[in-house]
Design a protein around this nucleic acid. Structure first.
Lengths: 203, 203
DNA sequence: GTCTATAGCTTGATAGAC
DNA sequence: GTCTATCAAGCTATAGAC
């Protein structure tokens, strides 16, 4: 921030514009592949002006990741231990798929980071992410023990939901290259719902 | 190549060493994030010596991708229309998971490329990949029409196999951050096999 | 707050000795 | 075939005018 006072409207607006531009560029080229020039051009600002709002390229990237991990995990947080097990999980899958559709850039930003070894968010994965997943795995295990959903490895169940749903954002070009003009998001929801109903319906 | 004659043993060995080093570095940092210096160091050569074997960084990357797409699709090519449908698909999933375990660097090389829009292999995706997938989708649709496996969207079925199996290579750090010391590959095969048996067993 | 100009570094690739 | 030295371009970040 340029000053210690509360940000003005212009400052808020410019920071938001920069972050949106940076999301676009980082998602498409990775941290190293993105240049400050590209981000500035995308944001409609000069390079020094952009660096007036953020001290460095690194700082822009960090600001993006920090805000995003929380948002990204919201659908899992909403998984309700008091709800009907199968429907809760299906609803989680649907929310996750919807995020891939609405926020593919955010998904690819994370994908870039994690494929390359998560050098900047490994701590967050080991702490925040692990704690949340462990908590929800406990819920799922209870449901399985009560025979309300079929028994499968709960961690792999969650990984499968992540991989399946994020695939449509992260590997979008490949999916579309194979499917042609048909929009994958038209048919994906029904497929994933069928998959998890058959996998988890009590025997 | 340095000369037009057939490569000597030393040339072959050095080219192989360079490609292996480049795979390591490109997989970990992406094309733009990798430097020729890093690759040379990893290969135990000087930078000019490396560029004696390949004309440019671009050429090394292209050589890697070219050789790899074929290998990567071999498991799908092996899907046999004459075999027992469910067992053929399960065997495909197992082979694919095994490749993620044995060749995680190759998986991440592709992941980096595709997440960033596949600028260098989009043509191969639209031609070679699409042709192969369309052919195998036809086989799967026949099986479904004959009632030998349950009916699901065949393209999404294949995407699900790719995403599920490659997730263990591409998102390895995240998987391990969540699961802790336990090796995900110990329990993954059983999970994916269960998943596809329940999804595809005829009603 | 925003710009032009530029410092200072990293990187891909080449020259030329051995 | 392999090296040291180096060039030219591209990059992040800053200086300083307005």
């Amino acid at each position: 921030m340029a000053q210690d006072r509360a940000p003005t409207r212009i400052q808020k607006k410019n920071r938001a514009t920069i972050l949106d531009a940076a999301l676009e560029v980082f998602a498409a080229h990775g941290f190293r592949g993105a240049t400050v020039d590209q981000i500035a051009a995308q944001a409609g600002l000069s390079k020094p002006n952009l660096l007036y709002y953020f001290p460095s390229k690194e700082a822009i990237h960090a600001a993006l990741l920090e805000g995003l991990l929380d948002t990204w995990l919201d659908p899992l947080r909403d998984l309700d231990a008091q709800g009907e097990p199968l429907e809760e999980i299906i609803a989680y899958v649907r929310r996750k798929l919807q995020m891939s559709r609405e926020f593919p850039r955010e998904s690819r930003l994370f994908a870039n980071e994690i494929v390359q070894g998560a050098p900047r968010i490994q701590d967050a994965l080991r702490h925040d992410l692990k704690i949340l997943v462990d908590e929800k795995v406990a819920v799922i295990e209870t449901w399985m023990a009560e025979g309300r959903i079929a028994r499968v490895h709960p961690y792999h169940l969650i990984f499968s939901i992540w991989s399946l749903t994020q695939h449509y954002a992260d590997f979008d070009v490949q999916v579309r290259a194979v499917m042609g003009p048909e929009d994958p998001f038209n048919s994906a929801p029904e497929f994933v719902e069928t998959l998890y109903r058959r996998l988890l319906s009590p025997a």
